[in-house]
Computed example of a mutant assay.
Amino acid sequence: MKLKKLPFLFLISSTILFAQETEPELSQEDLIKEFGEKSCKCIDEIITFNKNKEEIRESIQYCIDKDVTAYQMTSKLMEATKTKGDSEISIGMDKESDEYKKYYYQIESFLMENCDTARDLIQSNVGEESKESENPQALEFYYEGTKLSKEGKLEEAIKFYKKAVKEDPNFAWAYDNMGICYRRLNKLDEAEKAYKKSIKIDPTGKMPLQNLAVVYIHKKKFKKAVKAYEKLKKVDSSNPEVYYGIGSVYYSGLNDNENALRNMCKAYKLYIAENSPYRSDAEKMINVIYGAMKINNNEAKFFEILKENNINME
């Protein structure tokens, strides 16, 4: 769809110009922040009860989608006021178009850096197959711990998670969340123990397997981190977090750019397939790896690996 600068649009432009004479000029960063915060507020209101991860992801996507067109329009009008002469303002409405995705990804990137709710929903164990405890008292302690954790009261949350596993020693989720709290407090040994207890209860637990790898990364035990991710891959080979994690470890910890790139390409494609906001992180990492391989005069291998994965780099 193309919108010409007819009187209606000109009126909008004139209003913006008038505002610029009396107020500081609005920057692109301010604009992204304005619409990003609107999307974050929408995500805050998402009801997760009885929703699986796919349904939650779709709800997050809806919150971003509803602001993309307005953000795109405002951004282009702002640019139009800086140029002289008549021009056309083209608005990309097709969600599969590069134009639309550009503005979608800008809001999405803001959310991943600034919206705690968005990150927490994507990383949570909501919708996982593991069952909650059937012990009412353990559940009461668990939910109190979750509430305190969201409030940032991590030490107090841990106390309630401990009460939960005392009531139900097989309550894996309580150990999972306990591990998260310990990790945020940088008590890595305690976090490792909590995740291992959860894995002992449920060897196929995706959340503790992934978070154990993260703990090993923080402890600079990079080979153990890769092994932990490899165990997770056996449980869930289509999980992009596995390949993103392995790629990051190979790049940052083991100085192996080629294996880093191979895994990051797999992560990127899987993120794209499931429309995950983390695709932008994988894309950034691919560009970082490109820079490293370019310095080492290994560009040819870089493009060879991209070709193997059917990825084109513009």
Rank of each mutant, 00 (worst) to 15 (best):
Y105L: 10
D44T: 10
A157K: 04
E151I: 01
I289W: 00
I286F: 00
Y195G: 00
Y142R: 00
L232F: 00
E55Y: 12
F303W: 03
S59D: 07
K206L: 11
L270Q: 13
L9G: 13
S75I: 00
E34A: 13
I89W: 08
S248Q: 06
I272F: 11
N310D: 11
S133E: 00
K231S: 05
L185T: 11
G253R: 15
K131L: 09
K231D: 04
V68Q: 05
K187I: 06
A282V: 03
K131S: 06
K166G: 05
V242M: 00
I289K: 01
T69P: 04
S124I: 10
A267N: 09
E132N: 12
D30N: 13
A174M: 05
V226N: 07
G179W: 01
I60P: 02
I64T: 02
L17K: 13
A164E: 01
L121D: 03
K2H: 07
E29P: 04
I122S: 01
K294V: 00
D67I: 14
E23G: 14
Y290H: 14
S237M: 08
K150W: 04
G179P: 01
L306V: 00
N211C: 07
E21H: 13
F160D: 10
I60F: 05
L154A: 08
G205P: 11
T69G: 02
Y271Q: 09
Y62S: 08
G92E: 11
D120W: 10
A174R: 08
K200C: 10
A172S: 15
K234A: 15
P277T: 09
R183V: 05
Y278W: 14
L26H: 12
M285F: 04
I91T: 01
Y251S: 01
S97F: 05
Y71W: 10
I272P: 08
P7H: 05
S276A: 10
Q61R: 13
D44G: 05
A172P: 14
Q210A: 05
N298L: 00
T146W: 11
H218I: 07
D281E: 09
N239E: 07
K38E: 09
K101R: 10
K53C: 04
S39E: 03
E23I: 14
F8D: 10
G291S: 03
Y195T: 02
N170P: 10
G152D: 12
C42S: 15
E128L: 02
K227Q: 09
A118Q: 07
I201M: 11
E21T: 14
A164T: 02
A191W: 07
P24V: 07
D94G: 06
K231V: 03
L212D: 02
I305S: 01
T204K: 15
I286E: 00
N125C: 12
D256L: 02
K221Y: 10
T117N: 14
N297E: 14
A118F: 03
P277F: 09
Q106R: 11
V215G: 01
S59T: 03
D236R: 12
I64N: 11
K4H: 12
N125V: 14
D189T: 06
E25D: 12
E132P: 14
M93T: 09
T81H: 07
D98W: 10
G179C: 04
E155L: 08
K223L: 11
L209P: 00
I89E: 04
S90W: 11
K82A: 09
M313H: 15
V214I: 15
Y271N: 12
Q137C: 05
G92D: 12
I46Y: 04
F110E: 06
S97D: 04
L26F: 12
N239A: 06
V214E: 13
E128C: 01
